[in-house]
Simulated assay, not measured.
Amino acid sequence: MLAVAAVTQSTDDPLSGLHVGDIDEPPVPEDWVSIDVVTCALNHHDLWSLKGVGLPGDRLPMILGCDAAGQAPDGAEVLVYPVISSPGFQGDVTNDPRRSLLSEVYPGTLAERVRVPAGNLVPKPEGLSWEQAACLPTAWLTAYRMLFTNAAVHPGDTVLVQGAGGGVATAAIQLAAAAGLRVWATSRDAAKRDLAKELGATETFESGARLPDRVDAVMETVGAATWSHSVNSLRPGGTIVISGATSGDAPAKAELTKIFFKQLRVIGSTMGTRDELARLARFVADKGIEPQIDSVLPLAQARTGFERMAAGDVGGKIVFRV
């Protein structure tokens, strides 16, 4: 079947290990189902896998991808929930220390078909297009949990989204605006600041700029480059929710004194649950939110999408159609 896979890994030239073409279809484990993929989407996680981060070399070749929407064996239209729990684990799967994402232990979604546990399917609301549905399972689910589960913000609160332009950041802007929050966003790139305003940000600022007021919560995915700004931007008792560190995880200053003196909350956030994905899909459909899509490409042209993501030339999600 047609698939996109990591066959080798390289920190300096990750795309050298990218294979787009026919690959033997993996078997379907017991109690799992095979989904005919209609659309799938790209994440930075896929680039990290090609660099050897989170994907051991002895698991290669590995079909990449965490996001997909498609048809179940009974014809139902579904979203694929990509978090796989360890055998016997009960409770919030994001707290399972042995959990994995599709494409880490089990083959991923960038293929004509993907295999998942039967319980990992979420109905696709009628109001969502296939392209929109493919955006939700990873970046949008991460943003949803950051905002509504971990930051616990309310309509009228002010939220700062660092690094506007990335998949999680654009999702956070759109979700927060739809929920009645005042959204501020930062970026070094003027075009991405303009995009943030188009998506619902009330105000945008250059990275590190002094803000007109303190905020209730910060959505942090950039890491070291914006950490001090995030801490300094919060009101006393405010919350930083961090789900990534694309600029590195070792800031020049940890800001510990400000964190304890201002009684700030620092909360880590990873993905979300299947139930949160179902609520997210309904929220997006009911509110008429149109997830920001950078481009839609045939799966056979996946290398083009990877090249653009590697170059940082992306505003929203890159979606592949099978």
Rank of each mutant, 00 (worst) to 15 (best):
A3L: 02
V7M: 10
Q9W: 02
L15K: 05
D22R: 03
D22I: 01
I23Y: 14
I23S: 12
E25T: 13
P27I: 04
P27S: 14
V37Q: 01
C40D: 00
C40W: 04
L42R: 00
S49D: 07
G52R: 01
V53K: 09
L55R: 01
L55Y: 09
G57Y: 05
D58W: 04
R59K: 15
L60T: 04
L60A: 08
P61Y: 03
I63E: 05
G65C: 01
G70N: 11
P73N: 09
V80Q: 05
S86N: 07
P87I: 12
G88Q: 11
G88E: 13
D92Y: 00
D92V: 06
R99Q: 06
L101S: 11
V105I: 12
V105S: 10
T109H: 06
T109M: 05
T109S: 13
R113V: 12
V114Y: 01
A118P: 06
N120P: 03
N120I: 00
P125M: 06
E126W: 02
G127S: 00
Q132I: 00
P137I: 10
W140I: 11
Y144R: 00
R145N: 06
M146H: 13
M146E: 04
L147S: 12
T149K: 09
A152M: 01
P155H: 07
T158F: 12
V159L: 12
L160Q: 10
V161Q: 13
G165D: 05
G166N: 15
G166L: 02
G167W: 02
V168N: 15
A169F: 03
A172H: 11
I173H: 15
Q174T: 08
A176V: 05
A177H: 14
A177K: 14
A179T: 12
L181W: 09
L181Q: 11
L181E: 04
R182C: 08
R182P: 09
A185F: 10
T186G: 14
T186Q: 10
S187W: 03
A191W: 09
A191P: 02
K192T: 03
K197T: 15
E198A: 12
L199Q: 10
E203S: 11
T204L: 12
A209T: 14
A209W: 08
R210Q: 15
P212Q: 04
R214Q: 15
D216H: 08
A217R: 15
A217D: 08
V218W: 11
V231K: 11
N232R: 13
L234S: 13
R235G: 11
R235Y: 07
R235W: 13
G237L: 13
I240V: 15
G248C: 00
P251V: 02
K253P: 04
A254D: 08
A254H: 02
K258N: 10
K262S: 05
R265V: 02
G268I: 01
T270K: 10
G272L: 07
R274Q: 10
E276Y: 03
E276R: 14
L280S: 03
A281K: 04
A285T: 06
D286F: 01
I293N: 06
D294E: 08
V296D: 04
L299W: 08
A302Q: 06
R303K: 12
M309G: 00
A310Y: 07
K317S: 08
K317R: 15
I318T: 10
R321P: 04
R321N: 14
